[in-house]
């Protein structure tokens, strides 16, 4: 795992119907150290997805640099794992085959990659579901598969775009707790995008507040781990931090 450096990143979309340019990301710089968990938070339309898609290599950027371990990003690659809001599991593969897909692409043999996949499935308490197809799982289970599928490939950076936005509130809290637990165990470098301030503070080492395509402020979160909602719900430091981030995001 390596660090991620973003320097003066910008993105201008061309709208062919209106014939105008829309600048969605202005001059964003960010440095993420290896093993850090960074949340980018901001209101709808502030450019979060655009930034993440550029890091993932899905979108070309129109200015600045994106470096992973010192090397510029050029298209999607296995060094940057992605967890999608819409899960994006392969419906024609079983849960096990989905999780084993990354190792398979790396050329890992069948027995070995299934061992890896089983290990990661156990990490997310999904052992029972290994032989099932994604359509046979609940939304929360599907997204857990999405997370471990990306992790099983051992990317340098894990990119997550509102991965828990489409599950119900209770499941979301469980998934958040599980993600912090898995993160503590495996220590991947994570960039997590959300518009939910409490989620950002709960998960992150550092929260980056974004507004209208610009970074407003970076706030360190040194709440103790392991984190759980039971412990943090009434924690004064947690309340103070969420309050601060919320104010930042709303004031802009």
């Amino acid at each position: 795992m390596k660090n991620l450096t973003i320097r003066n990143l910008s993105k201008t979309y061309f709208d062919p119907y209106a014939g105008t340019n829309v600048t969605a990301v202005h001059d964003v710089s960010l440095n993420v150290e290896q093993g850090e968990f960074v949340c980018i938070v901001g209101p709808s339309g502030c450019g979060k997805t655009t930034i993440l898609n550029m890091i993932a290599g899905f979108l070309p950027h129109t200015g600045g640099d994106i470096l992973v371990g010192g090397r510029p990003v050029n298209g999607p690659g296995p060094d940057r794992g992605v967890v999608f809001q819409s899960f994006a599991l392969f419906p024609w593969k079983t849960v096990l085959e989905n999780v084993a897909f990354g190792p398979k692409m790396r050329g890992v043999g069948k027995a070995e990659r299934e061992k890896i996949a089983h290990e990661y499935l156990a990490l997310a308490k999904l052992t029972e579901a290994a032989g099932r197809y994604p359509a046979e799982l609940s939304g929360g289970m599907q997204q857990r598969v999405g997370v471990v599928r990306a992790l099983a490939n051992e990317p340098d950076v894990l990119l997550m775009d509102e991965p828990f936005a489409s599950v119900d509130a209770q499941t979301r809290m469980t998934l958040q707790e599980e993600l912090t637990r898995i993160w503590q165990e495996k220590r991947p470098t994570v960039i997590f995008i959300t518009h939910d301030v409490a989620e950002a503070v709960f998960l992150a080492n550092r929260v980056v507040a974004l507004s209208k395509g610009r970074v407003l402020e970076e706030i360190d979160v040194d709440l103790p781990r392991p984190r759980s909602w039971d412990a943090l719900n009434d924690d004064p430091q947690f309340k103070e931090l969420t309050g601060r981030v919320l104010q930042l995001v709303r004031s802009a």
Binding site: G57, G77, V82, F84, A88, F101, G102, R106
Partner: peptide, 15 residues
Amino acid sequence: IPITMERAARSLGCS
């Protein structure tokens, strides 16, 4: 086929 399928595969190292 949703674009996310292709993106997911590419991010997992699929040529």
